[in-house]
Amino acid sequence: MPEWISIIIRSIILITVLFFFVKWLGAKQLSQLNIFETISGIVLGGIAAFHTVDPYNSFYYALLAMFVWFIAAFTIEKLSLKSKRIRDFTDGKSTVFIQNGKVMEENLKKEGYSTDDLLEKLRNNDQFLVSDVEFAVLEPTGELNVLPKRENRPITLKDLNIAPAPDKEPQTVIADGNILLEPLANASLNPTWLEAELEKQNVTIDNVFLGQVDHQGQLFLDLYDDHIAVPEPAQSALLLASMKKCQADLELFALATDNPQAKELYDRNQKRLQEAIRRIEPYLK
């Protein structure tokens, strides 16, 4: 067998083997690998590369060596999933750099971090003042995670005491003019509904490039033909607007009338509407 044919065959086999080994070792990103996983990855690649271009080496040795390295990496990975102690050993532990707003100097020294390194890492996290930081921890991957002090954290709806309406993920129900049945079922809708909605907006399914359903079950469409104007979903906005209008009308009637009885009636119902708006508003936005 000429050497070049042997190289081709070896390459193909080794590529296949390597592919499956890497697959079985799990899909982690390079930066998430611990030291052992990185090394075994490099060695596996090295063995494959070395035996591909050297036709005088026994091919079975290559497979054997790769298999051993694979088994070793695989066992350690599985064991470290089971036991915390092995995990601490292979993955390393995280180190606390700042606790209760105070820098832990010994931990810095242990990890070989100077003050400048720490400040740089903090700046990476948008913290320019150490006094703004409540807690900072160095992960085994070398990343610093920072918890700012309570007053420096971004404001949330919880802080503002606003109760948001529950939100569901939007579903893409039409792509390239085809109805996608699974997302449609996820949104608990059916093709009949979709056809009715399309008819309402006066478009054919072939003309739809993308169709999405939001959490309120409203359909948004993007058409191939951009000259056709599609109304944006506004059912719920319309409902809210008419509620507000009605409330304002009643308020106006209450102000305009001189009859105290009628005034009282308008005012009472105006308040009812106000209460109704307050309750439903978060859902209609």
Partner: peptide
Amino acid sequence: ETSQLIKIARQDI
């Protein structure tokens, strides 16, 4: 809840 409120208001009006 909301439509109950609206209903009462409607009957009143």
